[in-house]
């Protein structure tokens, strides 16, 4: 009986010790992890069955009609009031000129005049630009801020998602993916 009690006690303390050590390492690794949450890319297809309006001629079209004829599409959410978007322009232009991707711009919560001015000033990398006055289209894509960029294939599958402005590495990566 005494012996059993002793074994019970040592098993119990062993469990506690193991739990303590595990917790220590979990917290230690947690310290190095990024605390700000960013959604991961899902392998899901994006939802495309909704109406969009062109920025320039203000005509309406269903978005799934837009995504036809090319192997890759790049959807870039931007706005004239977004500072990082200005720096991003040159990368988008680079992609427009050197890849076969269809560049689609979503103008997020902007005024038409300001948007057109912005394109004049920093260059227009887009084949088609749609307006997202209320931010609802961006939510359809699963975006939550500007700028955000989605690389999509002809099955409407999201291959890559970039939160924040693109940089050299991203451009390199996009070029690599679209070459094959």
């Amino acid at each position: 009986m005494q012996f059993l009690e002793k074994i019970k006690k040592s098993i119990f303390s062993l469990i506690i010790l193991i739990l303590l050590i595990i917790s220590f390492f979990v917290f230690k690794f947690a310290l190095q992890k990024e605390k700000i949450y960013t959604p991961k890319i899902t392998d899901n297809q994006i939802f495309t069955d909704f109406k969009v309006q062109f920025l320039i001629d203000e005509k309406q079209v269903n978005f799934n009609k837009v995504l036809t004829g090319k192997n890759f599409y790049l959807i870039n959410i931007w706005s004239s009031w977004c500072e990082p978007c200005k720096d991003e322009s040159k990368y988008l232009l680079e992609l427009k000129n050197n890849t076969p991707i269809m560049m689609i711009g979503i103008n997020y919560k902007d005024k038409k005049k300001n948007a057109l001015n912005f394109l004049k000033l920093y260059g227009d990398p887009f084949e088609k630009i749609f307006v997202d006055k209320q931010g609802l289209i961006s939510i359809n894509f699963g975006a939550y801020g500007v700028p955000e960029t989605f690389l999509i294939n002809n099955d409407n599958k999201v291959l890559k998602k970039y939160i924040g402005p693109l940089n050299d590495e991203d451009v390199y990566e996009i070029k690599k993916i679209t070459k094959n």
């Binding site: 700000i36 949450y37 960013t38 959604p39 919560k109 209320q134 931010g135 609802l136 961006s138 939510i139 939550y144 801020g145």
Partner: peptide, 19 residues
């Protein structure tokens, strides 16, 4: 997702308003 400690209901961020 913008102010990560708040609910969409409480938040006044652009994202929350659109949401």
């Amino acid at each position: 997702l913008i102010c990560q400690g708040q609910t969409i209901h409480e938040s006044n961020s652009d994202f929350a308003e659109s949401m």
